[in-house]
Amino acid sequence: MNRIENAFKKGKAFVGFLTAGDPTFDSSFENIMAAIKAGADMIEIGIPFSDPIAEGVVIQGADLRALQAGMTTDRAFELAAKVRKETDIPLVFMTYLNPVFKYGYDRFFARCKEIGVDGLICPDMPFEEKGEADEIAKKYGISIISMIAPTSEARIKSIAESADGFLYIVSSMGVTGVRSEINTDLAAIMESVKKYKKVPAAIGFGVSTPEQAEKMAALSDGVIVGSAIVRIVEKYGEKAAPEIYNFVKSMTDAVHKI
């Protein structure tokens, strides 16, 4: 039943990120559904955190809006459950370790399983520190997604070999956010990743145009886009869904044609 694996089977995958509760519970549900209708193969649902140290200003803003509107981990589970009723594509949570730790690993992953959330991305839980959560996640069949960065070098082998779900390849140094250019030698990194990986690898961080998406998808198994989508929410507020549909459509068209 591995939904994450399935998402990469049809070809290159497009992964879209949206923050739960940004700017409201209902609008974030509509935005996620718009992205799915526009052809997204997987959705990352962000559980907002007060101090998102790996995020640029766009997603920081989304976290703040969502928290101010009362989004919580429990509400994010409700949102994911509502989305799950409408779709079979994989859903993964993206948040920081503290909200998961504080919720309780067992309670968190048990709810993921119950609702049908397939994985978890925690930027502040590197390979060496994922052990204590991973053990419990595995018990419930939830994948903890590992990241590989431009600085990973010798670490690529151990990370790639033990990765679960899919590999998140961080395109650039620094934090999330739209970049006009991605200068990292991703071809070289992907070459190294391909030697060891047992699961698909998708590239994220800074991808904002169909041209970039096409380029990244050509190098890997998929593309992850966050800030460029959240920027639309920032601009259109509760009425962002049609704009998100149009944008995600342009991105999925670019990715799926490869």
Partner: peptide, 13 residues
């Protein structure tokens, strides 16, 4: 304690 930082920083740390 521990080293809970983004992968980008792990090598440097």
């Amino acid at each position: 304690g521990g080293q809970y930082v983004p992968e980008t920083l792990m090598n440097e740390i």
